[in-house]
């Protein structure tokens, strides 16, 4: 799950970044509106956490440009200005959710998950697939009644495939959702992680689509 965090304040930014990482997200952090614009045009994100009070280009402008470009990635807005008018303005400009400063880190993460769930067309947090039970909030996977432990990369690939059931995902797009800006992409890593997942969860779960990538078929 690759998330773009747009926040000009260092202390808030590094805190939220660390919090989102701990929750299993891949986080890119843009410190101003200009860099946010750049990131949004070059990278596909599944969620944007946007601070409105930005220097140079305001958060509201970033949001408007994003929506004008026809992108419907869910956006969670953070702001110190929490009046009703501000909230209405933000929501009308295309924000999906709103959090006033100072906010609760756990609430921020829960809202991020809810936004993702809604974007994926799910109404409950827990994903059930055949004999598989996946809880994204608790980051647990059960096969039948047996708890299976996954590495964070394996977990990210599994989530990506489960939330895109029926759509084959290329190696490149999986890599993109897995690695942030600062991280080196290891070659062949995706294949290794997929084969590990097959060992832990059963060989039939993930199917290889020749010349394209991988898919978890629709339930």
């Amino acid at each position: 799950m690759r998330v773009l965090l747009v926040e000009d304040d260092d202390l808030i930014g590094c805190g939220v970044e660390a919090g989102l990482r701990r929750a299993g997200f891949t986080v890119d952090w843009a410190r101003d509106g200009h860099n946010a614009d750049l990131a949004l045009t070059t990278t596909t994100y599944e969620l944007v956490v946007l601070d409105l009070g930005l220097p140079r280009v305001s958060g509201m402008d970033v949001l408007k440009r994003l929506r004008d470009a026809g992108k419907d990635v869910p956006v969670l807005v953070l702001t110190a200005r929490g009046t009703v008018a501000d909230r209405v303005g933000g929501l009308e400009a295309g924000a999906d959710d709103y959090l006033g400063k100072p906010f609760d880190l756990t609430e921020l993460i829960a809202r991020c998950r809810a936004l993702l769930r809604r974007a994926q067309g799910r109404s409950v947090e827990v994903i059930r697939y055949q004999d598989l039970t996946v809880n994204p909030a608790a980051q647990t996977v059960d096969v039948g009644n047996t708890r299976v432990s996954l590495t964070s990369r394996e977990w990210a690939i599994l989530m990506q495939l489960l939330t895109h059931q029926g759509f084959p995902l290329s190696r490149a797009s999986l890599e993109e959702s897995l690695y942030g800006w600062q991280e080196e992409i290891e070659s062949n890593a995706i294949e290794v992680h997929v084969s590990n997942l097959r060992k832990k969860l059963g060989a039939k779960l993930i199917r290889t689509v020749r010349n394209i990538g991988y898919v978890v078929e629709k339930a």
Binding site: D9, L11, I12, G53, A80, K101, P102, F103
Partner: peptide
């Protein structure tokens, strides 16, 4: 609110 938000997050 901004420094308070930072303190709370950290």
């Amino acid at each position: 609110k901004t420094p308070l938000a930072a303190i709370k997050v950290q």
